[in-house]
């Protein structure tokens, strides 16, 4: 009897461990795909509708570099972020620069950009680029098996958030970025070249988006329309998070990741997505400026 009880406990522990892992993975992937969008929105008040396509191009950059013989990790952690970051600089210069402060125009322009990038990707890369399979092996937890890559994604997301926080909090670049975000006119009166700050911010946001696209490519595969799969969730996360980049997007990711994964685990996958949407609707009803519009306003 004691033995059976122990087994039951063991089973329960396995289930708990695997469930936590799923929740953490849900949070991590949401946090990763949203961070770049949050930086560009939080710092520049630009709603980038081409965000999904930035993710897609990050994925393609990773796949193309890898198939050209570049080391997989270099392609993922350096190559893809760099390529999408540079794309971000071009986009900022050509599309965004003249539209700061004009929300509707930026939405329309970036929406057009998203269609353009999708079309360009289908000409350039097409639908038949051979992907890269998830590296690492698997982890056995009792009856369950989980990819080690999921753990890599969780660790990476945590590392990316931590380093973004450290950069914003403790470096001169971060100080300038925060000040410019709070009062761009005053910052420029103190000698800050606003346009340079915007370009650098756009580069960083785009690069982090490229990184996310590359990290998820082995799991999700990449086609020119991949952006469509990400865009809704990343927008909901960022809008619900509010304008505070790290705290807002972090908290919203934790909340949505937990709610949707838990619901999906306890009920059915359909309800997982519905729960995410419902939580967002309720939150925005009571906190129209997002979570950090009311709480953690002085955070990062």
């Amino acid at each position: 009897m004691a033995l059976v009880l122990h087994d039951m406990n063991g089973l329960l522990m396995d289930l708990l461990a695997i469930t936590l892992l799923e929740i953490f993975y849900g949070i991590a992937s949401l946090a990763l795909i949203s961070l770049g969008l949050a930086i560009i929105f939080g710092m520049l008040r630009v709603i980038n509708f081409a965000h999904g396509e930035f993710l897609m191009i990050g994925g393609f950059s990773f796949i193309m570099l890898t198939s050209a013989g570049v080391n997989m990790w270099i392609a993922m952690l350096i190559g893809a972020p760099l390529i999408v970051g540079l794309l971000g600089i071009v986009v900022e210069r050509v599309v965004i620069r003249n539209l700061y402060g004009r929300i509707v125009e930026t939405i329309l322009a970036t929406w057009g950009l998203s269609l353009f990038l999708m079309g360009a990707a289908s000409l350039l890369f097409g639908y038949f680029q051979r992907g890269v399979s998830p590296p690492f092996g698997t982890l056995k937890i009792g009856n369950y098996q989980e990819g080690v890559y999921s753990i890599f994604v969780i660790v990476l997301a945590a590392a990316v958030y931590l380093s973004t926080y450290l950069v914003l909090r403790y470096t001169k670049l971060g100080l300038i970025a925060r000040a410019t975000m709070q009062n761009p006119e005053m910052a420029s009166s103190l000698g800050v070249a606003r346009e340079k700050v915007y370009a650098v911010t756009f580069f960083c946001g785009a690069a982090l988006t490229g990184l996310a696209g590359a990290v998820l490519a082995p799991i999700a595969g990449v086609v020119p329309t991949s952006g469509l799969a990400y865009i809704a969730r990343s927008f909901i996360t960022v809008i619900t998070g509010g304008a505070t980049v790290i705290a807002g997007t972090g908290i919203a990711s934790v909340l949505f990741g937990t709610v949707s994964q838990l619901t999906a685990i306890l009920t059915r996958p359909v309800w997982g997505e519905a729960a995410l949407l419902l939580t967002a609707v309720i939150l925005l009803r009571f906190l129209p400026a997002g979570i950090t519009g009311r709480y953690f306003r002085n955070g990062l």
Binding site: I18, T19, L21, E22, Y25, G26, S29, Y144, E146, S150, A220, L228, A229, Y230, A232, R233, S260, Q261, A264, I265, P269, V270, G272, E273, A274
Partner: peptide, 12 residues
Amino acid sequence: PLDASSFGATIN
């Protein structure tokens, strides 16, 4: 749903 992309719980 068509935008579901997280299958971990199902795989478990």
